[in-house]
């Protein structure tokens, strides 16, 4: 798996991937829908899969002494590492924002602990929709991404609407840290657990579909 991950980084990684990590700094924008930062992570993964198709990565990888399932696992590992890197890069900017500008975010969820939990769930939804569809037909990467975008936008719409309309979200979760830390940490834990669950589910579905696929 280490070798395949090296291949993903050395040959497959799209140049936008590390650049998009820097977009975590958008947490410093005073009023902004912060979910967009994590949407860029999904865009980076789309670019990587698109670039893999254009570079005939599948044809190259199938020649290597690895199982077909390993190819799926390594791409998932790369995706999870990129998503975690985005989260880790965002943490210092969230802390900095609180220090520089403790006012609430008027454009959506505050840059707080709950936002990270909800964003992880968003990434889990993306992984589930995008990769499950992508590995059924890797040539149609655009179609898979469109479907995943619809799912992600619906999720963000619901989450942002809840921050305005649902009292628990508005009064407890959408507040500057460190108030209501217990509830926010619970949302973070639930978000992380659901992210892991959706991603593992997507991995199983993707392996099953890809190994049955004729290339």
């Amino acid at each position: 798996m280490k070798k395949l991950l090296y291949k993903e980084i050395r040959l497959g990684m799209h140049p936008t991937n590390p650049l998009f990590l820097g977009l975590s700094a958008m947490l410093l924008i005073p009023n902004y829908p912060y979910y967009v930062i994590f949407f860029y992570t999904t865009l980076a993964l789309f670019f990587t899969c698109l670039s893999a198709r254009e570079n005939h990565d599948m044809e190259y990888s199938m020649l290597l002494p690895v199982d077909k399932a390993d190819l799926v696992k390594s791409r998932f590992l790369y995706a999870v590492l990129l998503e975690m890197a985005q989260v880790l890069c965002a943490i210092p900017f969230a802390l900095l924002r609180r220090k520089l500008n403790p006012d609430p975010n008027l454009a959506g969820m505050d840059a707080n602990v709950a936002l990270f939990g909800l964003s992880l769930l968003m990434l889990g939804v993306f992984n589930w929709v995008f990769f499950s569809r992508y590995y059924a037909d890797p040539q149609k990467v655009g179609k898979s991404f469109c479907l995943a975008c619809v799912a992600v936008f619906c999720y963000v719409l619901l989450a942002e609407s809840a921050a305005f309309a649902v009292p628990f979200f508005r009064n407890v979760l959408d507040t500057p840290d460190p108030t209501h830390m217990g509830a926010k940490l619970a949302v973070l834990a639930a978000g992380a657990a659901l992210y892991a669950l959706l991603t593992l589910w997507a991995l199983r579905r993707s392996i099953r579909r890809f190994t049955a696929l004729d290339l």
Partner: peptide
């Protein structure tokens, strides 16, 4: 698969992967 692929070479036409690397 893994053991076999260690011992064979498969060349499908010319290299058309990672053309810019």
């Amino acid at each position: 698969q893994r053991a076999v692929k260690q011992r064979i070479g498969f060349v499908s036409g010319a290299v058309d992967f990672y053309m810019r690397k």
